[in-house]
């Protein structure tokens, strides 16, 4: 469904992505793993159109979207949930989620009323329904992450890009969140790409496939267990032990 073909992205003299190619199939869950500075976030930004690659193409459902602006990609069904939630502090939780629905893959086909219904539905799913009239700026950080997820889901994505959404969340909540995402994704056939800095068991259990980026290049790809056992991993993380 998503194909990234030989993408290179430079910032001045710095090469953030070097000839990276990858594929994500419909309904698949892929974890993109790499230490800080490995190019993960740049890869996401190239996929959803924040950056244009210097070389290479991005294809979505067989269509070349390399030159499409970010907002058009959202209409096609690529949604992103940011690592640091980007709340709209002065509007209500319900309106925030409705923005996801209005400008996602439903774009142009639903009105405000339907968008609010979809927003309510997704807010129930992440347990924020009771706070739907609260101003977004008043939510706690974990709540914001839930809202971020609800908003992404409200856009009815075909591909959901999850920035390190679990970072900084209590472990019990991480498990809950990952299960939730997994269930929704299975029900609706959403493909998920998630960024992971440290390989955690929850992620390993979550992903069908793991792609490892290091210094802008793809160096490993395979099933989670297989990748974890690869000696290269230890080298990349310089002996850093991943959490059990």
């Amino acid at each position: 469904m998503l194909e990234v073909l030989n993408v290179t992205k430079r910032f001045g003299g710095l090469v953030a992505l070097k000839n990276v190619s990858l594929k994500i199939e419909r309904g698949e869950r892929v974890a993109i793993v790499g230490p800080n500075g490995s190019g993960k976030t740049t890869l996401f930004n190239v996929i959803n159109g924040v950056y244009k690659p210097d070389e290479g193409r991005v294809l979505f459902e067989g269509v070349d979207i390399t030159d499409l602006p970010a907002y058009r990609r959202a209409h096609l069904g690529i949604a992103r949930a940011f690592q640091i939630p980007r709340p709209f502090p002065n509007i209500t939780v319900r309106e925030s989620a409705a923005i996801g629905a209005l400008f996602g893959s439903y774009y142009g086909r639903i009105g405000v009323r339907e968008a609010l219904e979809i927003a309510d539905e997704k807010l129930k799913l992440v347990n924020l329904y009771d706070k739907r009239f609260e101003l977004t700026g008043r939510l706690t950080v974990p709540e914001l992450k839930l809202l971020e997820l609800a908003r992404a889901l409200a856009s009815k994505p075909k591909l959901l890009l999850l920035d390190e959404i679990v970072a900084g969340m209590p472990p019990a909540m991480v498990d809950h969140l990952m299960l939730l995402v997994r269930r929704v994704a299975d029900e609706e056939g959403i493909a998920i790409a998630t960024l992971v800095e440290h390989v955690m068991r929850a992620v390993v259990r979550f992903a069908d496939r793991v792609i490892v980026l290091h210094l802008g290049s793809k160096i490993l790809e395979g099933g989670p267990e297989e990748v974890l056992r690869n000696p290269l991993m230890e080298e990349i993380y310089l002996g850093r032990r991943w959490s059990p």
């Binding site: 907002y71 058009r72 980007r86 923005i99 996801g100 996602g104 968008a115 856009s155």
Partner: peptide
């Protein structure tokens, strides 16, 4: 809704599908 999203965070709005 588009204008509110722009007012609050224009970059995020664009990623969410708003033709800012």
């Amino acid at each position: 809704y588009a204008l509110k999203a722009i007012r609050e965070d224009e970059d995020a709005a664009r990623v969410m599908g708003v033709n800012t």
